[in-house]
Amino acid sequence: MNWTRKDLVGLHELSADEINFVLQTADAFKEVGTREIKKVPALRGKTLVNLFIEPSTRTRISFELAALRLSADVVNVTAAASSLTKGETLLDTARNIEALHADILVLRHNSAGAAHFLAPRLRTSIVNAGDGAHEHPTQGLLDLYTIREKKGRIDGLHVAIIGDIRFSRVARSNIFALTKLGARVTLVGPSTLVPREFEQLGVTVSHTIDDVLPSVDVVNLLRIQHERQRKEYFPGLGEYIRLFGLTKRRAELLKPDCLIMHPGPINRGVEIDSAVADGPQSVILDQVTNGLAVRMAVLYLCGGVPR
């Protein structure tokens, strides 16, 4: 197929074919990462700006390394160092970056829809690195890539996403992409963090983890995000662990070949026992490695679309 999007703002708007095309493109870049010389000239002479309005370490580093390995020039801007603190609007900041002939703007922002807002207003490619509680498309893609790599397929698999779904952009990107590619998705967590409205997105909602674990092929655990939450959503971490933590004992309910995934950062002893996170079923670090290949693919595809 022919990739025609200058932006990647979300997985909601991608077709199954487009998602598969990104994953296939990532295969080639994954191989590059194993070479002695890890750099290819695909984006030589292009400029990428990482505009991170919300703090992030792993995603920013992953995008930066992905761009460097494609031979692009990279500039990092954080909220504290940008004119946004002086009252400049996001659109004006982005237009200034565009006026400096930046080819790709990678945006992390705490407002849902921030990337959707910028994309049609700029010629520069916009790659969404997380917008509020809405989407984190490259995380969704790297999760799919990892599942496909380990299981050989996505279609027909049963995936449980466990934890704070309400506030999770990772969950939404996974839901949109997994259901498009034929996986069955069950969301698990407390009723306050996994509201029933999610069933309208074509998934199943459960509040009983022990019922779900035996039948799934993948569990994707989400971090309980203290910084986004008000105390009324659940009584405390102790109760969360009691009801939903993937303890060693609960992990025994899983099929032996069930994958354990986590987008990081992990709260060891909260959503997942330390031993389980480090156990044989865990593919958490494979996700990180694959993230680099997937982001190289996304930057290569979006950066290569003529404008």
Partner: peptide
């Protein structure tokens, strides 16, 4: 509005 779209859009 709290419903399908607030859920899907993360608003």
């Amino acid at each position: 509005n709290e419903g399908r779209w607030s859920t899907s859009l993360g608003l």
